[in-house]
Amino acid sequence: MAADKNDAFHAPARKRTGSWGLLWIAAALAVIGVALSPLLLGLAYSRAGVDFGVIGDVGQAYGAASALVATTALVAVAASLIEQRRQVREVRLQLLDQTTDELVRLAMANPVYRQCWGARVSPGHVAEDLFYYCQLLVKLWTDSWEQRKIDEPLARAYLQSFFDSEVPRMFWERTGDWHCPGPARNHRDQFRVLVNEEYLRALRAGPPARSFEQFPSTDDSFPVINKPRTSRPLEFP
């Protein structure tokens, strides 16, 4: 599979979702405080026997604070709308990710659908299932890396073992971007940098410890249940 086709297996980079609850509460309390402050001031000054004109002077000073609080509330609402939009995009990316996984597994379970992806993803002598499975492994580690469930030493350990087999090397040679890597714009892209580094490190280290192993891949290679052992008619004593 070409590099551009391999991108279909990778969901766009995702960021962690933050919590805006505290910001909402602070903005709401500020707005309520501003709305009730004239009443509270009126009660306080009326009980103290202070001329109501003093309250008017306080109100003029209060206007600047009111404008500041209103601006803060507006910024909070705008930030919340932006966050909600990002969360919706996050959900859509997750659904896209799940759909991609389902399509790959469908192609693995039903080889007839693989021709719909275009050219073969593996050389003619290598079963395509192996490349599909390699892709699922890389995707699993990429998602784990993005969610920070694995750190760099553990990721490199996985990749070193991965590329000590001939099939993963053939897979990344065809589908990886090791020959023209793009910039690492986010945490997810950094994992692809690690994959490329460990792939090239494995090539420099020499042949893999595990060579390609040919397994039967056609239905004729497996026994058929209840298949007659002979075509001769049954004989009874």
Rank of each mutant, 00 (worst) to 15 (best):
M1E: 08
A3D: 08
D4W: 01
A8C: 06
F9V: 07
H10D: 01
A11E: 15
P12F: 05
P12T: 07
R14M: 12
R14D: 10
K15M: 11
R16K: 07
W20P: 06
W20R: 15
W20T: 14
A30R: 08
L36V: 13
S37K: 08
L39A: 14
G42R: 02
G42K: 14
A44D: 06
A48L: 12
V50E: 15
F52Q: 14
V54E: 06
G56Q: 07
V58N: 13
A61M: 14
G63I: 03
L68K: 02
V69C: 05
T72P: 00
A73R: 02
A76L: 09
A78V: 14
L81H: 08
Q84I: 11
R85P: 08
R86F: 12
V88F: 05
Q94T: 15
D101A: 11
L103N: 10
R105V: 10
A107S: 02
P111W: 13
R114H: 07
L130Q: 12
F131K: 02
Q135P: 00
K139W: 02
L140Q: 11
W141S: 11
Q147H: 09
R148S: 11
I150M: 01
R156A: 12
F163S: 03
F171R: 01
P183K: 06
D189G: 11
Q190S: 15
Q190D: 13
L194A: 07
E198F: 03
L200F: 00
A202Q: 04
A202Y: 01
L203Q: 10
R204L: 06
P208G: 08
P208M: 04
V224I: 13
K227F: 12
R229K: 08
P237T: 10
